[in-house]
Each structure stands twice: as C-alpha cells, then as structure tokens.
Write a protein that binds this DNA or RNA. Sequence first.
DNA 1: ACGACACGCTTTTAGACAGCATGTC
DNA 2: CTAAAAGCGTGTCGT
Length: 791
Amino acid sequence: MNLEELSGLPPGAVSHFQAEGIESLYPPQAEAVEAGATDGDSLVAAVPTASGKTMIAALAMLSAIERGGKALYIVPLRALASEKKAEFEAYEEFGVSVGVTTGNYESTDDWLATRDIVVATSEKVDSLVRNGADWLSELTCVVSDEVHLIDDRNRGPTLEVTLAKLRALNPALQVVALSATVGNAGEIADWLDAELVASDWRPIDLQMGVHYGNAISFDDGGKREVPVDGSESQEDALVRDIVAEDASALVFVNSRRNAEAAARRLANVVAPELDADEQEALEELADDIRDVSDSETSTDLAAAVEKGAAFHHAGLASEHRSLVEDAFRDRLLKVISATPTLAAGVNTPARRVIVRDWRRFDPTAGGMAPLDVLEVHQMMGRAGRPGLDPYGEAVLLAKSHDEQDELFDRYIWADAEDVRSKLAAEPALRTHVLATIASGFARTRDGLLSFMNETLYASQTTERGRLESVTDTVLDYLERNDFIEREGGNSSTSQSAADDPFTSAADLAAEADRDVELRATNLGHTVSRLYLDPMSAAEIVHGLESADARPTAMGLYQLIARTPDMYELYLRSGEDDKYGQLYYELEDELLGDRPSEYEDDRFEDWLAALKTGALLKDWADEMDEDRLTERYSIGPGDLRGKVETAEWLLGAAETLAAEIESDWSVAVREARARVEHGVREELLELVGVRGVGRKRARQLYQVGIETPADLRTVDKGVVLGALRGTKTAENILENAGREDPSMDGVTPVDVDHGATQRGTDGGTTGSASEHIGSGGEADADEENQSSLGDF
DNA sequence: ACGACACGCTTTTAGACAGCATGTC
DNA sequence: CTAAAAGCGTGTCGT
C-alpha cells in the first residue's frame, strides 16, 4: 500500500514520512490500515520485533488526533518512554504535540492535558487513573506497546487492569495493542474487542540457526562455516567472523558475571580490527564511563570499551547503559555481551545475535530452567538493522549434535507461549482492588466483581469462583488494615463464591440490592494515591505506631526495606550469622513485630531487610560508592535503584505518618533527606544549596562551614581552599545567596582539617572508609558513628 | 620450611515500576 | 527434577 492512499492523517504527515524515506507501508502495516487502524477501530498487532509496529501505532494515533482526539502510548520501561518521545517529537513539524510522563520525569497534569500524544509507563497511567486525571476521559486512542507483558507476574496485572479501566472510562476508545508473536494473540484481540493482525513478515530477512562444531546450520537448510580455533569459545569465533565483515554482534548470556567475563574475552577478539580513529573515540567513551561512577563495574566496563566491546546488565548505572547503547548503535562498539535486559529494552539491533545460554537459574524451578520461547525470540529478533544490514542472523550454540536438534525443536521451530493473565495472584489483587474502590470504579462488591469480569483473567479462566474468592480474601485484608470499610449486606467473610462456583452474572446482579457497599477510608485513599502496595503501607503504619521512642534512621531503613515494594538484597551464605549478630545489636532500634527465630523464612527475610537497611545506612553515612558496591557485591545501578526506591518509600512513609498523626514524621523526613543526598545529619543544610552534593558538603564542613549562612559570611579563601575550581566555588556562593560571589583575586586558604577542628564528630568519609578497608579489626568504636560494616 | 599447583567442595546465579518537588563532582 | 563457572580450602609434591 502506498502512503498516498492513506486518508485521515494530519496534513503534512504523509510528506513527513516520505521525507524520512518511507514510501509505502509494510504488509502488516497495510493490513492494520485495512483492519481500521486509521478509522478508529481497535486492533491487536502481533508481529515480529522491528517490523514496523511503531508505524501502526503512529497511523492510529495521528488519525485519531486529526479527528480531534487525543492519544496515549503506554510503554513498559522508562527508557522506552524517552525513546518513543524522541521518535514522536518529529511530528511537531506538522503541529502534533508530544509529552512524556514517568515516575522520574516531568509531569504536570494540566500540561499533559494540552498534548496530543502522551507517552507513559503502565504504572504511571495506573497512577493517573487513581488520581483522577481529567484528561484521561478525553482519550480516543490508546496504544499498548509490548502488550504480551500482561503475562508478567509482577507488572502484568497493572497493565491489564489499566487497559480495562481506560476502556471503562471511555467505551468508544480505540485500543491498539502491539504484541510480539505469541500463541494466543487472538484471545487477546477477543478480550479487547479488537481485530487481529498477525504476521511473520519482517522487513529484512532473519536467518535463525545453531552453531555446532565448525559451522552454523540455518533454518532454511543453509550452512555457514565458522571454524573455532583451538581453545577459543564458540561465541568468540562467531564474533570474530562477523566483525571481520565490518558488522556487529550481540551476545546474550545468563548472568552478569558471564556478561562481564565474555566482554573481557571478546574485547581481545575485537581489538585487532579497530582503526586509529575508532580507538581514539573509544578512549573518550571509556573516560565518560569512568566519570559516571568510581566502582569496579565502571572500571571493568571502561577497560572493555577501550577495545571495542562492552557488557550490559542491570548492575550498570543508567548513564552507563545509554552510553553503551548509543555507541553500539553508532557502530563504535562492535559487540555487547548482555543479560536479557537488552532484549526488552531500547532498540539495539545487530547483524548477528548470539544466544549463548538458553538456560537460566530459576529458584522457583529449583535449578536451571530453559528460557521461554518468547524470550529467546525477542533476543533473536534483535538481529538485523533495517536499511543497514542485508539480513540478520540469530545463532544458538550447541555443544553436541543432540543439543543442536533440541535447540531447533525447542526454539527455532517452536511457537511462542500463550499469554496468561496473572491477575488472580493475591499481591496483585491487593493493590488493584484497593485502587478500584478508592478511585470510585466500584462502590459495591458486586460492582467490583463485574469490573473484574472485564479483565483478560475473567475471559481466560474457567474456574468461575476463583477470582471471586481471592477478591473476598483481599477485601478482608483491606478491611482489617483499615483501608476500606464495608457496609450492609453480610459484611463478614463472603462465602457466595464457594456456595456455587457457577453463579452467573445475572444471578449476581439479582442480588445487587443485598450487596455490600465498599468505601475506601482516608488512609486507603492515601495508600492508593501514593501507589503503595497496601501490604507495604500496613507494615509502615504498624511500624510507626509501635515505636514508643523516636525511630532511628536505621530502624526506618529496615522498616521500608522489608515492605514488598522494596526488592531486598539477597542474603549470602554466612551472612545470616553476620546479620544475625547485627540484629542483636540493633534489636531495640528496629520497628514493629519481629519474627521469631524459629520461623526460618520470615527471619531470613527480616535479616535480608536488615542488610538492605544497612546498605542504606552506610550510604547515608557517606560511604563511598565503590566501597558500597564492593561490600554488598552490587553494581552502581543496583545501588542507585535501592536509594531511589528508599527515597520513594520514605516519602510515602512521611505522608502516611501525617495521615495517622504519628509523632515521628520529622524523623521520617530526616531519614528520607539523608538517603536522598547520601549524607549524615550535620550536612543536611549544606546539601540544600544547589551545586553542593554529598562530597562537596563534606569538604565544606571540614573547614568549618556548616550552613548556607556560613557560606555567605565566611572568608572566600576558605571556600576556595575546600573546593577545587574557581568556577564551582563562585557558583556555589551565588546559589547560597552571597552578595559578591566573585573569586577574583582570592587565594585558596588551606585549613588544617586533620586536627580537631570543631564538629569533627562524624569523622570524615576518608577515615570512615579506612576502617572498613582494614576489615573491621580496627578500633571501630572510637567513632560512635562508625560504619555498620564494622560490627 | 615453604611455595606452586591440582583437586574437589562450596557458593552463586536476570530484571526495575511508583509520590513529590527540583538539580551531582 | 535440571547447570556451570568462579572461589575457596586442602593436600601433595618439589625445591
């Protein structure tokens, strides 16, 4: 289909696409248009990665806007939100405005209301629904990208419920669901009352194969010799082979450590192929990477990058990730070895994709479990850059002939699994039942059940009573914790589900007047708006209420670390003793009911939370990033993730404290501020000055500058002596509101901060770190604020 | 007495959304 | 119910 045949798009859109070199639609895109994408009809597009799904969405959104409507594009990851925003911003050329909103990205409601296209994560959309954003009812087109993630145990239910709510808000809503090729796309289409567009078509040829011995055997029967020299690994040979063709490769492995080890080896494979210009550019990139963080991860990554290779996993800081992704897209980096993060993330295609490991450790399976077909297909789908590569190659690795056959059967010739709703899991329902009641979507038990009946779960399940009985369990839980109130009906535990699992909707409706009325309490409303898991909120509320003295920072950190919203650190072997001991030392500081040591699992969790809390405490005690990452064996990305989550949860805890009129909101606020800036109490004031972070604040404090007021009055030479750089010092003085911040003619004054200056009680970061480095046998108790690691 | 090395037992193992109000070294 | 590589401690042998 030719672009000019399209009607209903904003003027200028067609010529815009033509200017980008698009003249005609790909077959699946044309099919989508025939199915009514530009006429406001709903559809599910189940097509391979990189076969122009975004264009289908764009056509639907643009035509909806042209009809005077408004579109929402739902993405699964924040990184994808910015990627899509950048893509859609090109439409501003013909007058279509775009806005993004995610948890950490700008978002004023009224601003979003003026945008034609809004890009948001599913959780953010859920949150907007809960907070009653008015403009949501003006939506005429909603795109759900990667809709197959409804299958995800943790985040799938949010997407599912959010789509159901958006449809309930506006029954005429056009829903465009973009999915990978899954087993039951038709079922999803039925659920959404949408047309199904399914296709295997790809813009460039994808050859899938298995490498065994000295050759790759492809699915089309072809073969390609790729000999393995001596002791090198299969992936080394495959990478060397493709880099020699001046193309790039992506290697998927099953653990972070493997990704790092592979990058180290591949760097040596790739390095000989680099020219002088590339080497220079790579040096620069390596410097940028080292600037991001001082950790070992950062150094290792930089070392690999200097030789044209990189690793990629969630332990990387997000700046690391984007530096690596961009350089790979620019063909500067020749190979990335990655964990599955990369397959789900932003677009990073390569000529050759090597899926090295097809089994991964899975504790629920009790050992190594094979990857899902869908997952492997997603990885393989990254092969081939449209317009740049003549074809794409996806290669699995086999160590035996039998394995080769198995891989063909299991992945290459296999269809992806079905998408199954995970909504009936209790943790998911806890959250969504409360939100549904609090935001007024359901006012009675009956109304709640009929809303639930509009979800994919209801359309998939054959057990009629299951959802109903779990819902009742959840309602009991919410009522017990004072998040909702029930009135009328038989408000004790409802047993109607058990009475007759085949009760029809009509029967239920007939009982409506006897039905229980549901109302969220103020606390319940707050919890829903804060986007907390009700169980987290209950834990926090209970913890705060049980404190009879001002809670310590450590107590609060452990409290939030044991909520289900915080992903706890894993307790290594031997650490149960270590943290068990810390537990006895800190027993009085910890909040809420502690589990008995005989409840093994709960006690383990408690200690794991203690470890997470200790990490936060060390961070707030100004421990250096590289020490933290080493001590807790985590990457810089994990550290920042934990800190961010802690900030969010403590912010929520502060609101909850106000709601329950707890005496401890000040303590919570202070603990949050310390985590936010990573500083001890005495630096909190200084850190409020723009341009002053944890490091500079400590430097200033050491020369006797303790408050912003000191910055305004102290001798400028002292400031200059503490901070390196005239420019920085001037900026900081200006931000502190000093009359005359100029450093002209000021000479640095060196204050002797080794000796007992005033206020050295906290000790310096340096000296604190030294104790840690020496393994804790040092005189840790000399400093009353010494690091937790010294116990 | 001391160190290099081999062997075997133990340990470890992917990912990442959200409130609110503004800015690191 | 399933794996594999790195880390660690012990034992052996050679100097």
